[in-house]
Amino acid sequence: METPVKIMIVDDHQMFIDGIKSLLRKEENLLVTSEFLCAEDALEHLDIAATDLIITDISMPGINGIELTKTIKSTFPDLKVLVLSMHNDQEVVSEIMMSEADGYILKNTGKQELLEAVFKIMDNGTYYSKEVLSIMVNKVKKEQKIQEETSPLTNREKEVLQLICQEYSSQEIADKLFIGRRTVDTHRQNILQKAKVKTIVGLIKFGMKNGFISDL
């Protein structure tokens, strides 16, 4: 990566923000450009040009992390969101996923996991655990009723979608299918259009509804 990933951190504990900053300081590819102690400030001062990824806490006074994610994803679907939380209740995590955040890690994480999640998300992947995905399948199936008309996917697109649902990043899909990374991104764009969704997690939900990841 030539230009570093520009990161915004939102957490109501300054100490935690400082912790993440000091972890990321040594990474040349990552740059913390802004930090906020509450979601309201983050939304007010959001500079889309200076932000590629938002790392946010869930429980914050006022607007919580889930609402923040929903707001951001509905206006800027390409802006990546990684949620950090103290909760590992599966209900909470699947709610995070429903808000279309690109990934989720527990707060008592280490440097390695944090970096892994960030890089995977920045490469158009998602970062969730398998258990959460399987709960999601049930949840998504329940809301199947309001399904929109979609144009059929090509076989290649179906393959790509299946891998996206299994949380593969662009590079990983490219390696797996022996095609170029750019080709993968083109496929992804096409599937997004056909599925009439805007985000990666939106795609995963689409895949779940249409039985592309029944084997989870």
Binding site: F16, I20, T109, K111
Partner: peptide, 14 residues
């Protein structure tokens, strides 16, 4: 308490 410990871990991890 959980928050404090998590922050401690983050710092050590650095």
């Amino acid at each position: 308490l959980g928050q404090l410990l998590s922050t401690a871990k983050l710092n050590i991890s650095g």
